[in-house]
């Protein structure tokens, strides 16, 4: 029964596709893979999965979300850059790890900003420096003071966080220890468990702030966070360094014009939906911000310059 109707569907589908190829709108041949540059359970993962879902509903394409963690998105984007530009695969990553790697180790990267066609952005992440609520300090100056007398292990899950803290370390003349982790959740775990004195998290720490288990030491962005207007940024606390993580979508350079247009539109429609907005607001605590293809590219190129000055 099922097979029969399926074959019938196939026949109609074939007939239709023959009839409409002439003026056909571009559609992916087979499933469209949305590769997420981080593991399951984090904020990038949530955005990717909800966008894939809404996109599938709106376009009727078979959109599959897949986790491709490694190097803060470097692994995934290396793959995208080396893929045939057929519009079958798009990547979702965060700009900061990409930019910092391009600045600090340009020779070793298998791609640069020219390797991609950009499709849009989902929003900004608000990265916070956090500590356990009973930590003997409330700001970066206090942390520096603490580090003068004690070992001060700091949990980080992406290179920019470590480099920023190394800048603080040099400027203040103290020493931190760096605990490399697999993600924000592990940072929180090490902080709550008392193995790390401070660490970083972009969104998932909010319930812990409300519960009074964690406190926020600084905003790592160049603006204060909308949910914590009283916590100053790292820049305001005297260390001229910040990160500006943006979630962005890209595909391989040289994707045909019609495919690129179709993908850009499908993505923009999904991002404009109520459902995506709610989920992103829940996990990021910041609104959807789609800069569009040109805006995304400009954001990355400006960012590269900026990061070059900050992190070189």
């Amino acid at each position: 029964m099922r097979i029969k109707s399926w074959i019938a569907g196939l026949a109609t589908g074939l007939a239709l596709s023959v009839a409409t190829t002439a003026q056909a709108e571009w559609a992916p041949k087979g499933p469209l893979t949305l590769e997420i540059g981080f593991g399951a359970g984090g904020s990038t993962d949530t955005i990717g999965r909800i966008v894939a879902k809404v996109m599938k509903e709106q376009t009727g394409w078979n959109v599959i979300a897949e986790n491709k963690p490694g190097g803060g998105g470097i692994a995934m984007f290396t793959g995208i850059a080396n893929r045939p530009a057929d519009g079958q695969t798009i990547g979702l990553g965060v700009n900061m790890p990409i930019l910092v790697n391009l600045v600090t180790r340009p020779g070793e990267m298998a791609f640069n900003l020219d390797s991609f066609d950009y499709l849009g952005t989902a929003g900004r992440a608000q990265l916070a420096m956090i500590a356990r609520a009973d930590a003997p300090f409330d700001d970066v100056a206090g942390l520096v003071e603490y580090a003068k007398a004690n070992n001060a292990p700091i949990a980080f899950d992406a290179k920019p966080q470590e480099l920023a803290m190394r800048k603080v370390m040099q400027a203040a003349g103290v020493e931190f220890q760096f605990l490399s982790t697999k993600g924000g959740a592990e940072n929180v775990q090490l902080i709550l468990g008392g193995q790390a004195i401070a660490g970083f998290e972009a969104g998932e720490h909010l319930p812990f702030l409300e519960a009074g288990q964690l406190k926020m030491i600084a905003s790592m962005n160049n603006e204060r966070h909308n949910y914590a207007p009283d916590t100053p940024t790292l820049v305001e606390q005297g260390y001229p360094i910040y990160v500006d993580p943006v979630f962005f979508f890209a595909t391989a350079k040289g994707t045909p014009e019609d495919a690129r247009a179709a993908l850009t539109k499908a993505l923009a429609d999904a991002l404009a939906s109520e459902e995506v907005a709610t989920v992103v607001l829940n996990s990021l605590k910041s609104p959807i911000l789609n800069m569009g293809p040109d805006g995304t590219e400009a954001m990355l190129r400006d960012g590269l310059e900026n990061v070059g000055q900050l992190f070189k």
Partner: peptide, 11 residues
């Protein structure tokens, strides 16, 4: 083929 390509819509 039925399980993967038809039911799961995976390549």
């Amino acid at each position: 083929w039925v399980c993967v390509a038809v039911l799961l819509e995976r390549p």
